[in-house]
Structure formats: structure tokens, C-alpha cells
């Protein structure tokens, strides 16, 4: 079978996704993305009194990579302490899948973000604006970009070089306008 750009492990998680569904009375839920953009994920967590993730389930609207990254993300966090789960980056998700096509990396960013959103929900943390993902292809958040801008990245090219934002598969189509807003905000100060 021709899997296109997906490797066997990605195809396995897409064809046989683990932990599909919802959890009744979850400890925390995280919902990220939206259907108009083509992908949306919802993660449900069951966390015990010691902070251990006993169970995780997901529902995802999206392409093969969106489903595979959701599946492996739930696999990775089950049995882990919430602090360990926090450490799971989009790169860890990509590595666990043995790689993803470049234009699908944003799915791993979405999956990592979904875990964080569910943990925030559990901990009662209002999602902070600084944690908002600006560059979806490379998984760069607002905090990282603002830090770069406030430390000498005065142009879009500087931000690209310092943070890696806007250098992913979409070539900045998703995020350049938002990066520019941050640059404008700081140049006014």
C-alpha cells in the first residue's frame, strides 16, 4: 500500500488509533484548533490524587497526521505525572511517530497544545495569552516571539532567525500577520 508521505507508524496510529473517545467526568479537557482550518482536537484526562494521568482519550477532526498525533500523544501521557506530561513537546510527538512530513508538523504542535490545554483546565489555569501558539508549523508561542522582539529582533527576518517562526511548511502564511502585530506593538513602545 502506498502511504504517501506517512511512515508505517503514523499509518498504524491513523488506521488503528488508540484511546479514542470521551471520559465521563474528566479531570480536565482541552480543545484546540477549529474545523474551518481543517483540524480540531479534543483531549480528555482522568488524573488521580497523586497527579498521575490514569487515562486519556481524544476525539479529532482532521487529516491522517492529526489523528495519528492525537493517538500517540494520549499514548505518551498515560501513566505519567502531570509535570512529566507538561514536558512533552511537539518534537517528542514527532519523534515518537518516527517523523512526519514537513507540511504536517503543525498537527504535532496542535496535539502538544491540546495536552497543555487539558492540563491547564485540570489545574484551573486560565490559558494565558503568552502561551498562545503563533507559528503553528514550528510550534512557537507568543512568549517566545515577544522575548525575541524585546531582545533585539526588530524585523520579521530577525524573528525568523531567532525563533524559527514563519520558517515552516506554510512559509509564514498562517502567522506573519500576527508576528507583524507583535513587532508593531513593541516598536510603539
Amino acid at each position: 500500500m502506498n502511504n504517501g508521505d506517512y511512515n508505517e507508524k503514523v499509518m498504524d496510529h491513523f488506521m488503528n488509533p488508540r484511546h479514542v473517545g470521551e471520559i465521563d467526568k474528566p479531570s480536565g479537557t482541552g480543545e484546540v484548533g477549529n474545523a474551518a482550518c481543517g483540524d480540531m482536537m479534543k483531549i480528555f484526562l482522568d488524573i488521580d490524587e497523586n497527579g498521575i494521568i490514569k487515562d486519556a482519550k481524544f476525539k479529532t477532526f482532521g487529516c491522517g497526521a492529526a489523528i495519528a498525533t492525537s493517538s500517540i500523544a494520549t499514548d505518551l501521557i498515560i501513566g505519567k505525572h502531570i509535570d512529566e506530561a507538561r514536558e512533552i513537546t511537539n518534537k517528542a510527538i514527532v519523534d515518537a511517530l518516527g517523523g512526519l512530513p514537513k507540511q504536517k508538523l503543525h498537527c504535532s504542535v496542535l496535539a502538544a497544545d491540546a495536552i497543555n490545554a487539558a492540563l491547564d483546565d485540570y489545574l484551573g489555569i486560565e490559558r494565558k495569552e503568552e502561551n498562545e501558539i503563533i507559528c503553528h508549523c514550528m510550534g512557537i508561542d507568543r512568549k517566545t516571539i515577544e522575548h525575541a522582539v524585546s531582545h533585539g529582533a526588530f524585523t520579521l527576518e530577525d524573528v525568523k532567525e531567532k525563533t524559527g517562526a514563519a520558517t515552516g511548511a506554510c512559509g509564514g502564511e498562517r502567522c506573519i500577520a500576527n508576528i507583524q502585530k507583535i513587532l508593531d506593538k513593541y516598536s510603539e513602545k
Binding site: M1, G4, Y6, F14, M15, F61, G62, C63, G64
Partner: peptide, 14 residues
């Protein structure tokens, strides 16, 4: 409605 085209394509491809 509610499902994404590439996912459909890949599953049908299977």
C-alpha cells in the same frame, strides 16, 4: 460533514 477529506482518502486507499 464532520470528517476530513484526507483522512477519508487514506482510509479508502487502504
Amino acid at each position: 460533514d464532520f470528517v476530513e477529506g484526507e483522512a477519508i482518502l487514506l482510509r479508502l486507499n487502504y
